[in-house]
Design a protein around this nucleic acid. Structure first.
Lengths: 345, 345
DNA sequence: TTGAAAGCGCTACCAA
DNA sequence: TTGGTAGCGCTTTCAA
């Protein structure tokens, strides 16, 4: 069985290709009866127009490219789910490429897809790109009239739509919450200290301490290396050196859990003696013991929002120039590693 | 800036389109000097052939479709990573579609992509499809000369390449291991009891018990509903009713952890009083407390293998008819929810 | 050594 | 109401 084309159908009915094409598009030009019999037959043999011919003809593919740093990150997977759902609803397909945090892979990928493969991009930029501050490939792409929407890890330098979280405010609120529930010595542990989003969180942390009249204690701020989750515990050990710390905000779940384990090993009870809040409401939080209180970034919503921005741009060419940044508000998901604010024992 | 085509380059040099095309393909037909100057210019302006034109011309897209039931499943994400890496190496792109375990979505998806969008498929079939045993869409696709490779959740009824794990042997070995380390009353908890892979595991469990001269105790076998992870603990409670159970094999990590929590709440020490092994070496295992001993299905390797099978089929059209099934051997990853076999405390 | 033309499958304009 | 034709961008055969 081979793919059937308009030509085949035309031969079958001894009509011209254009007649078939019009009939299948329900054109008024074609007589009722011919139209119906053609449509019926097409349905019968399950005719599907060749998408490459359409893409070539229309110069658009109904496909978008998703470029993310990692496949195994739960937050990104959630975002991907939001993107995928929205795309399917809108009749778009998605091509996914992973950069593994590599700048060169990101550049290659975006070039590979900029040859008519996709109509636009949704991107969360790689760590290396952010460190190098080299965004030329994105700018080229935009100049090429391929719109880009960035989410979570975005670059101010690039003029495009963006979807971000209110990291500063979220961390501020987390500090406030810990303080209100009784914590006096709140720490901050980041696994992504070189990224902008981490700095936003750190600022929120500092402002939060200020707001509760607490000084920043340098010993309670620590950076761990992302690539080495097995070493989290040793990298976090300094936090507990003087046994002062009684609360922690961590930039990811794994770090939060590692800290919790150290505390427990030291005989601290969680959350009574040690409270912890972790970023990104992922899969670990729901299965830890006790369950981790998190700051939810609403990954799926972020993905959905990014996709909507992109489709809007793709389908309303006029507004291709004015870009917007949407801020997705985080929520604290209270579980069992923090004390309630009122009546906390 | 607009996309540049052969025509543009031809105009620039006042040559014909075919000359440019040949020059860029390094054809001997074109004179050395013209060839070089054209190639140089093309590189300069970053010429990229339009992929839709190529796909149309060649009737192949260098793209494969990946159809999986879930985006948030760690095992599938690992497989996806293996597929993605292999695809990029081979110069292929991947289009990913999620079925959310829905048969109709699976059918729609595969139809949507069978119009020239992809050259072949890698599929892990949805639960609904397996329940309905309705594989017509796959058979149609294959008849259409679009090859399919199935992995993990496969259908015997469909004649195509497959990549599976030795579930029976793996579970058998797990029972053996638990028994050797001292467990007398080993249970089995499945979250996917209606799927073939679960039955294979169950058989392995039963054969394992037989091998260690233990009878199957119906009370120690339980099925939980996948969709309701928050209810795992209550669904697992019956296992502990008579306080006999001292070992468990679970078909996923979350179930294993839920069982562990129950045991701990009952004052049992893990692994001394209660040992547990969970399927699919995922993210939860490494972060639980104690860390979970797992059966690794080598997700990334499975993905890689599936991709290799597919590319082999795509690039050697001759062998499109003979299909193979590759079995990926599992490994037990020993962590801290099981006792060592020799010298267990 | 270069170019013209056909064709991949489809749409749309213009004739008939 | 129907059909011919051109063209989307590219490759390839054949002719010059």
């Amino acid at each position: 069985m081979k793919k059937v084309t308009l030509k085949d159908i035309a031969a079958k009915f001894e009509l011209s290709i254009s007649t078939i094409s019009k009939a299948l598009k329900d054109s008024e030009e074609i007589g009722e009866s011919t139209r119906l019999k053609i449509q019926e037959y097409a349905k019968l043999i399950n005719y599907r127009p060749n998408i490459n011919a359409l893409s070539l003809k229309n110069s658009k593919t109904k496909t978008i490219g998703i470029i993310i740093p990692d496949m195994l990150d739960y937050f990104l997977a959630q975002a991907l789910r939001g993107i995928e759902k929205t795309a399917i609803e809108k009749g778009y397909k998605i091509i996914i490429c992973i950069t593994n945090e590599s700048h060169s892979k990101e550049v290659e990928t975006i070039e590979m897809l900029s040859n008519g493969s996709v109509d636009g991009f949704i991107v969360s930029i790689s760590m290396e790109t952010e460190l190098k501050r080299d965004y030329a490939h994105f700018m080229d792409t935009i100049a090429f009239e391929l719109p880009i929407v960035m989410f979570d890890r975005v670059a101010n330098e690039v003029h495009c739509d963006k979807v971000v979280t209110n990291n500063l405010e979220a961390t501020f609120a987390a500090v406030k919450k810990l303080s209100d529930s009784g914590c006096k010595h709140i720490g901050f542990a980041s696994s992504i200290s070189h990224l902008k989003i981490s700095n936003e969180m750190l600022s929120g942390y500092e402002k939060g301490l200020e707001a509760v009249n607490s000084d920043v204690n340098k010993n309670l701020v620590v950076n761990v290396r992302e690539d080495h989750y097995s070493g989290y515990e040793s990298m976090l050990a300094p936090l507990f050196k003087d046994n002062l710390i009684d609360g922690l905000i961590a930039t990811n779940e794994a770090v939060a859990l590692a800290a919790m384990k150290i505390a427990q090993r030291k005989g601290r009870h969680v959350p009574t003696d040690f409270s912890v809040i972790g970023y990104s409401n992922g899969i670990l939080a729901r299965h830890s013991n006790p369950k981790l209180t998190t700051i939810s970034q609403h990954g799926e919503l972020m993905g959905k929002t990014a996709a909507e921005l992109l489709f809007d741009k793709l389908e309303n060419i006029e507004n291709i120039k004015n870009v917007t940044t949407k801020v997705i508000k985080t929520d604290v998901i209270e579980r069992n590693t923090t004390l309630p604010i009122h009546g906390g024992k």
